[in-house]
């Protein structure tokens, strides 16, 4: 056990130091897909979260409960759902999204939308109602008020974005079903890890896991640095 972990660390370092081309390619692709998904999902979720937070409407509580329930949707189910839509027999077959990085991005967006919307709403609710009233009293309209509250809650929202990115880059259900784990095209960290594990390359899998963690750490540090600047 201990030997295998030491071996995995050694292998991880070796792969990084030698700039293994396949590893670099997989790293870039994983980052591209998951960062794009996180960015797109954030651009969708934060305004939606703001609207849900700001307006009082019938069924608001139920809607929030529903969104929170969707946090725990298995990634494979999201993958299957999208697969049925974009597969050649599905209604969106003409988009030709199956087995493409773009399809994976859409899948990951769907996967992390509930978390991002839900956590955005929670983050905004966490901002004191007095701040909301202050903005309104100072003459802010609905849009300006939502923007102000989002700014007030930016640390919490940033946390939600980090969490969503973590879920996106570590998920395997969408990556396998929508991406198809095509070498050189849709193969990402998680699908490589599951492939290498089933091939018996346990050390390589653990090494890849370490690299994935290291990347997540770097991204979190970057975001923390951004937060710390203020």
């Amino acid at each position: 056990m201990a030997n295998e972990i030491i071996g995995a660390v050694e292998q991880a370092i070796y792969l990084i130091v030698t700039l293994n081309p396949e590893l670099i390619e997989i790293t870039i692709r994983s980052l591209y897909i998951s960062l794009s998904a996180t960015l797109i999902a954030s651009l969708i979720s934060i305004p939606i979260g703001g609207v849900i937070y700001y307006y009082e409407f019938h069924g608001k509580r139920t809607l929030i409960n529903l969104i929170q329930t969707l946090y725990s949707v298995p990634t494979v189910i999201v993958g299957l759902f999208l697969f049925l839509l974009i597969s050649q027999r599905g209604p969106l077959a003409n988009l030709n999204l199956l087995f493409t990085p773009e399809g994976m991005i859409i899948g990951q967006v769907l996967l992390i939308l509930p978390i991002l919307i839900g956590f955005t709403v929670t983050a905004l609710i966490g901002v004191s109602n007095q701040i909301k009233e202050l903005a309104i009293a100072l003459g802010a309209n609905a849009y300006q008020t939502i923007i102000t509250i989002i700014k007030e809650a930016r640390y919490a929202i940033m946390g939600a974005v980090i969490l969503a990115f973590g879920r996106a880059i570590s998920e395997v259900g969408v990556a396998i079903l929508i991406g198809g784990n095509i070498r050189g095209f849709t193969r990402v960290f998680t699908t490589t890890i599951s492939l290498e594990t089933s091939k018996g390359n346990i050390e390589l899998s653990i090494a890849l896991g370490f690299i994935l963690l290291a990347i997540a750490l770097i991204i979190n540090l970057m975001l923390n640095y951004l937060q710390g600047r203020e």
């Binding site: 007095q130 701040i131 202050l134 100072l138 007030e152």
Partner: peptide, 14 residues
């Protein structure tokens, strides 16, 4: 056209 100061001292982040 109005200004308002609330009872509780309050500031926006920033």
């Amino acid at each position: 056209q109005m200004g308002m100061v609330f009872q509780k001292p309050l500031a926006f982040k920033g």
